[in-house]
Nucleic acid binder design. Sequence first.
DNA 1: GTCTATATAATGATAGAC
DNA 2: GTCTATCATTATATAGAC
Lengths: 192, 192
Amino acid sequence: MNHPTRKEQILAVAETLFREKGYLATSMRDIADGLNMKGGGSLYAHIKGKEELLAHIANTAADAFFAAHESAPQQGLSALEKLYEAMIAHMLVITAHLSAAAVYFDEWRHLGEPSRSAFLERRDAYESKFRILIKNGITTGELAPADDRLATLHVLSAMNAIRHWYKPNGRLSADQIAEVIAGMLLDGLKRR
Amino acid sequence: MNHPTRKEQILAVAETLFREKGYLATSMRDIADGLNMKGGGSLYAHIKGKEELLAHIANTAADAFFAAHESAPQQGLSALEKLYEAMIAHMLVITAHLSAAAVYFDEWRHLGEPSRSAFLERRDAYESKFRILIKNGITTGELAPADDRLATLHVLSAMNAIRHWYKPNGRLSADQIAEVIAGMLLDGLKRR
DNA sequence: GTCTATATAATGATAGAC
DNA sequence: GTCTATCATTATATAGAC
């Protein structure tokens, strides 16, 4: 990380610009500018094309979500607690990688095939982990009997939405936000 | 509505395409195609340019949110009930105008100035109505004492996220979804 | 009001000098 | 590896015939 390769530098700039302006509104010249290069042409010594950047960023983000999910505490926890930990881990990936998250959630749709389908399969596989956690909570009785499909969509989309308003140097830390949002969401699902 | 003007037809097609592909990925030729026109040039007999379409759709969506908010039941309701009714009204605007909602929430950023700032001011004004409702609920003690800024961001962004997964002919009706989501969100905010 | 043709600008990507 | 120059394509928007 202290000595990023040129390709890593390109990816970092692309990620930031894709979030700030969107993939289509970001030109290869814009990316080159961010690296103090004089024209877009030099980039092609390091990458095959613009879409390779998009695919790489989207898949790296997916890696981060999977890794965080697998690293979340599980041992000796109730279904509800496991869900809570997975939610915290998920939101901390978003807040720690805001630009990558923008690609993961919004800009992926500019991927061509087959990258697009491959990405969506990974995303679906990841999201189904949350549905299982929620179903388990309903089974154990910790969560209210509910439409687990709808509950999963709600929980995921509410967590993901923090990408739209979280500010890295804002009033509340990422940890605080993650805890409060997870708490509110789980209180909305609990048996009462 | 039974006899839409040509301009209204153009706006309807543009709205749909802006949601499906995004504003930048939608060409004037695409819009003309959707109206069985032979080339993008004919559109300019009815509109000044592409961005006029974007601004018009975004502001019409804003009109719909304001109108629904003002029409929501208020008389004789508690703070919590008023919030609930406003949430239902908000989500039903989204589900009834999915394409316009995509512009309102996502594509507005491609507006140039001064349309962009004017739109954001209207959106902020609308969103602050929800913050007031939530603050009132905290004051009356119906909602748990909490960070009202964070609670408002959470409630708004969770409601708005249904645009990403609601399907008009899906398993659950818009009314069902709005009621369940509003219920879960409010349960997450209530004093317990 | 719609058509065809076109002006103008920007894009992703390539070629070749250094 | 970066530069400059450039190609091919596509975009918004305009002009003028019908």
